[in-house]
Design a protein around this nucleic acid. Structure first.
Lengths: 183, 183
DNA sequence: CCCTCCATGTAACTCGTTACATGATTCG
DNA sequence: CGAATCATGTAACGAGTTACATGGAGGG
């Protein structure tokens, strides 16, 4: 009955309100995409497992609009399990970074390719940063409505900080690679 | 005959010199650990696959010290495959970050726990940064020996940049969480 | 002799991704 | 009526982790 990492977001989101699998998917894509990826092929099996473990329960939604929709709510056991997970030290594993792997082995290929990759990464990061700024503006307005928004903004600021750092690394690296080429 | 992501480091490292599985493992742990994790239970199967695909070949090492050691060298096909991979756009997927997931759902648990996690993350990051500085100093000396060291330093600077960004995020977040608690 | 390191491997399991299958409803 | 969206699911595969099994060599 160990709580799987991939089930945490489901449990967490169900503290907001009862939801169906499909709604959970939407919320994850909308709210967690910046620091969490879910395997949606596993979503329904995970819901089934959580149900069997008694951490969530199926409710008959009053507003169930006649669709073949299953709505789940978190149980007290579920809340306990989530709280327990929250107090546990997070496991951080070094993430795989393909761009860095390419930079590391750059001398085995054409450095012009690597330069392109870095320019692309910079452009992507700029776009991401703009997106974050937009979300931040919206969250700022929400802070009066819900205390949760404070925490959401913290995660967003993490993304902004890391993205800015990425952009300046790209700048430095691009410059160095360009200098090398003209030599 | 698609080149698996996990096989790339093996191919890349074999451009340095012929190596055995065990040596590859050491090199990966020593050189790539900051941006790449390998599943060492897959290492030997991957070597076998690369061998079957003709991207590496087994050589009888002259210096083979009578141990039951298999030494592999990269082939021309292997170099081609690596170069091809290098020119391909890197696939970046949003990495999972458990710390952020905990911050995101902080309101469902005890924020004192989250504060602890952030303090721990900061301490870890400080240690990482010190480690990086040490490696950078060593790499600095290597740049005259091998041109590759330039690229290695780029990856290291990425790590330093991201780690510094993480530290300042931790500082800001810790402060915000502390203020909240005294209220 | 025992421990550590060198060295290669397998088995069992968990996890994650992709693609597909199915069908209802809504909107133009 | 056809396309998009809502909605739930499965199958097949690919990837990654952990733990174990085996044995030689070198040093204290």
């Amino acid at each position: 009955m160990t709580l799987k990492r991939s089930s945490i977001p489901l449990l967490g989101l169900l503290t907001w309100r009862p939801m169906s699998g499909y709604e959970l998917k939407q919320e994850i894509e909308g709210s967690l995409e910046n620091f969490w990826s879910e395997s949606f092929g596993q979503l329904y099996p995970h819901l089934r497992d959580l149900h069997h473990a008694g951490l969530i329960e199926e409710i008959d939604d009053a507003a169930n609009d006649s669709r073949s929709k299953r709505t789940y709510a978190i149980t007290d056991d579920g809340r306990r399990a989530l709280r327990h997970w929250l107090s546990d030290a997070p496991k951080t594993r070094p993430p795989r970074n393909e761009l860095l792997l390419k930079v590391f082995f750059a001398s085995e290929g054409d450095t012009a390719d690597i330069l392109l990759h870095c320019r692309q990464a910079r452009a992507d990061a700029m776009a991401t940063l703009e997106k974050y700024k937009g979300i931040d503006a919206r969250l700022k307005g929400l802070t009066k409505e819900t205390a949760k928004a404070r925490y959401w903004r913290m995660t967003l600021r993490f993304g902004m900080s890391q993205t800015r750092s990425l952009i300046s690394w790209c700048d430095a690296t691009i410059e160095e690679l360009e200098n090398e080429q003209t030599n």
